[in-house]
Design a protein around this nucleic acid. Sequence first.
DNA 1: TAGGACCTTGGAGTGCGCTCCAAGCAACCG
DNA 2: CGGTTGCTTGGAGCGCACTCCAAGGTCCTA
Lengths: 149, 149
Amino acid sequence: MTETVPARTDTCATAPRAHPRPEGRDHYTISEVAAHTGLTAYTLRWYERIGLMPHVDRSHTGQRRFSNRDLDWLAFVGKLRLTGMPVADMVRYAELLREGEHTFEERQELLESTRRDVRARIDELRDTLAVLDYKIDFYADARRASERA
Amino acid sequence: MTETVPARTDTCATAPRAHPRPEGRDHYTISEVAAHTGLTAYTLRWYERIGLMPHVDRSHTGQRRFSNRDLDWLAFVGKLRLTGMPVADMVRYAELLREGEHTFEERQELLESTRRDVRARIDELRDTLAVLDYKIDFYADARRASERA
DNA sequence: TAGGACCTTGGAGTGCGCTCCAAGCAACCG
DNA sequence: CGGTTGCTTGGAGCGCACTCCAAGGTCCTA
């Protein structure tokens, strides 16, 4: 919501979906979402409390009814979490989404800075991998040598 | 220490060094090490307390004198930290080092499992990068479209 | 109609990885 | 000589991201 650009919208960006949604429906209870995402119901409510989750639809009696869009958003949040982005920054992004189209630029910048962070992180990990490989080789060599002895 | 295999030892594995050591000496005070590593003196003492740092040499009056080997170890610990490895696991590795050669196998396994984790982490981050790229494109397109209008 | 899932708010608790302090004293540097 | 740096132990505090609970209620399904 808050986004109005033909056909594509921001919150449903993960094009091909790994795990199909639990069912073909478009509304899920909190426990279904918990099971699907691996988050607890507590955490889902907490996400909503702190503004990380856009307001979730309610049934006529007040129970949460998560939509596919909500699941998409949660999947995206999951990705951001993997990058180590602090929750506060994700909340900021969620706010920008709520504020409408005039925040496009800021959103783009935020994503680009995140992208830079992720790239840097990948590079760091690659360095680490090299070190690990070096050490693992060392142990492999040492053990081969001791077997020969 | 604890390791006795010709020429190469485990703790000095990061072959070409990015930043040369503060000075050509082989002993450094705690504050020199703090400056060099970006860790605080508190953290360095804490590392020693919890067994993440092998016992550091002392001057005749009891002050810590970090060696180049210690700096190598700290650099390695820094790498491991980047992988998100819990401190407790690093402590475990340090214990294995102290226990001597008969722990070679376990050390190798630990490193290999870490390597798998790092690889998985890199893959996750690459996925995330793809999502970010997709979204950034979306914003770029949207803004180009609005400029044309 | 029973039992389980769900609702609310506010606040407390947890685990991790630091981060810092107190206090009293030794050592080093200009 | 004075000021900075260092030493020790044990413990407290912090920020983050959850994680969970209380309590009193409503809703849904078998």
